[in-house]
Design a protein around this nucleic acid. Structure first.
Length: 483
RNA sequence: GGUCCCAUCGUCUAGUGGCCUAGGACAUCACCCUCUCAAGGUGGAGGCACGGGUUCGAAUCCCGUUGGGACUGCCA
């Protein structure tokens, strides 16, 4: 395997969110279009904030999105010895020094300094390494470090804007910048594709990578290329927050977004396929994706557009695929996964596979998410249609003509041939006899049978529902109107 | 405050010096279709942040201004 090697390195500090998904997707696309290797490495070294369920969330979300990895999942916590060895080499070669300053002492000393940050107090004090000293990296006083970035070009950072940052905590824990880079070295990562928020820490990593290459006893490794992806932001143009913004991938899955639609939409955030078509198959994404074409500016995560794309994907499904895809929402007892915190409005006994198969095509082109289906087909499966009060008043209760038409329908529907076409023609005739166009005459019937004024095509629905149920509901509505 | 990044319709973007009277998509508005609601069709409104250069010619290159953002932890 000689292609590029990329990795997605999330930390399990919360549910898997759309920003992570986008980063993961871009890594995956790059690997797949270049015949490279996609590695998953879970950076779980901050024990305080890590939880087993978050780790699992990463795996299930990536599997759902179809982002398969070639190596891993590696756990960073299994690689601690490598980090310690790298830190030791850096220390032995003079790149690191021990510092016993406390935060308070530093703040006191640097108060009023023109240059913010640590003042290098311990640089040449030759403090002994103990469990009360941290290890700092000796940042050169002059010069710049250049980060080669495939989306932004070379970015130069002046050394004098960096303090001697801490690399190893006093308790011996190696911090993210070094740990992350050591793993990238050992995994021979060639392209580091990640969020733009990491750009300012990249010079630290480049400096340490270079330092490591000069340590005796350490094999030099070529620097990776970097690609810093623009942030995903909310309406306030702030970086997406796990706490404040609706970003959990799992919640989109629960709502009934298709993985393929989400992937397609995510790819459009900071990049776009050639031509005018935005809804394109995954193969096109893979074929056309280029890091060099990634946009430089932040992108707003627009649920409205995601929803539109999801609707397109739903309508593209074959009838059978739509039925299968919607099963978790209409018959959650069937599969091994179903959305959480969503109650189906009918019981397992009330639901009917064969009926749903005939109902499904009626709603497939009307929903934008699979989660909308139950409310739309509820009246097919439950006995109590729970007529909406406002709808009832409008079409039946407060409309004498509507009421009369309902009575006409009860009489006529008892004997006519039970087909959508006949129901349609009969209702049209009934309405015309009372001076109503079909859009008016269908309303009371729709209301009585489905409970609302909006829904799937009425006459097809009645045909599927059957004569007995239809008549019972029409009579019930009449009774309610007369009481 | 410091360092860095960014700047095309409300939003996501195309555009890499002449093909731009700035294209597409979402959202929005109007109309058509229609048994409701959708879907679909047609059309409309809507943008190069500002100011200087460079050039025969700039949305595209340079500088400045303004505005936004990220980072600035013994988190990752």
């Amino acid at each position: 395997m000689t292609g590029p090697r990329v990795r997605f390195a999330p930390s399990p500090t919360g549910f898997f969110h759309v920003g992570s998904a986008r980063t993961s997707l871009f890594n995956w696309l790059f690997a797949r279009q270049s015949g490279g290797t996609f590695i998953l490495r879970v950076e779980d070294t901050d024990a305080e904030r890590n939880r087993e369920e978050w780790h699992e969330g990463i795996l299930t979300a990536m599997a759902w999105l179809g982002l398969d990895f070639d190596e891993g999942p590696f756990l960073q916590s299994d690689l601690l010895a490598d980090h310690a060895a790298a830190a030791a080499a850096l220390l032995a070669n003079g790149y690191l020094y021990a510092c016993d300053c406390t935060r308070e002492q530093i703040d006191e000393r640097i108060k009023g300094n023109a240059k913010p940050g640590y003042d290098g107090h311990c640089r040449d004090r030759h403090v002994a390494r103990t469990d009360r000293t941290a290890l700092r990296f000796r940042v050169p006083d002059v010069g710049v470090t250049v980060v080669p970035d495939m989306v932004r070009g070379d970015v130069a950072f002046p050394h004098d804007s960096y303090e001697d940052f801490i690399v190893v905590k006093s308790n011996g824990a190696v911090l993210y910048p070094l740990a992350n880079l050591v793993d990238d070295r050992s995994m021979r990562v060639t392209h580091v594709i990640r969020g733009e928020d990491l750009l300012p820490t990249t010079p630290k990593q480049v400096m340490m990578w270079e330092a490591l290459n000069h340590c005796v006893g350490v094999d030099p490794v070529a620097h990776p290329f970097y690609a810093h992806l623009p942030m995903l932001v909310n309406e306030q143009r702030k970086k997406l927050s796990k706490r404040k913004d609706p970003v959990a991938i799992e919640s989109y899955r629960d709502q009934g977004y298709l993985a393929s639609a989400l992937v397609n939409y995510l790819a459009l955030l900071g990049w776009s396929p050639h031509g005018d078509e935005e809804i394109v198959p995954l193969t096109t994404l893979v074929a056309q994706f280029r890091l060099e074409d990634v946009s430089h500016s932040p992108a707003f995560f627009d649920v409205k557009k995601l929803t539109h794309i999801n609707g397109e994907y739903i309508r593209q499904l074959s009838a059978a695929d739509f039925i299968a895809a919607s099963a978790p929402w209409v018959a959650p007892w069937l599969g091994d996964w179903h959305p959480t915190d969503r109650d189906v409005p009918w019981t397992r006994e009330q639901f009917s596979d064969s009926l749903y198969e005939r109902v499904a095509p009626l709603v497939q082109e009307r929903v934008t998410t699979l989660g909308e289906i139950p409310a739309m087909v509820r009246f097919f499966f439950v006995d109590d249609v729970a007529i909406d009060d406002a709808a009832f008043d409008k079409a039946i209760g407060g409309d004498p003509v509507g009421q009369a038409l309902l009575a006409d329908a009860v009489a006529a529907f008892e004997t006519i041939e039970w087909s959508a076409a006949t129901l349609h023609d009969t209702t049209t005739a009934l309405g015309e006899a009372r001076g109503l166009v079909l859009r008016k005459s269908q309303a009371p019937i729709r209301c009585a049978v489905t409970g609302t004024l909006v829904g799937p095509p009425l006459f097809e629905s009645l045909e599927l529902l059957g004569r007995d149920v239809t008549l019972a509901r029409l009579r019930a509505a009449l009774d309610r109107a007369r009481s």
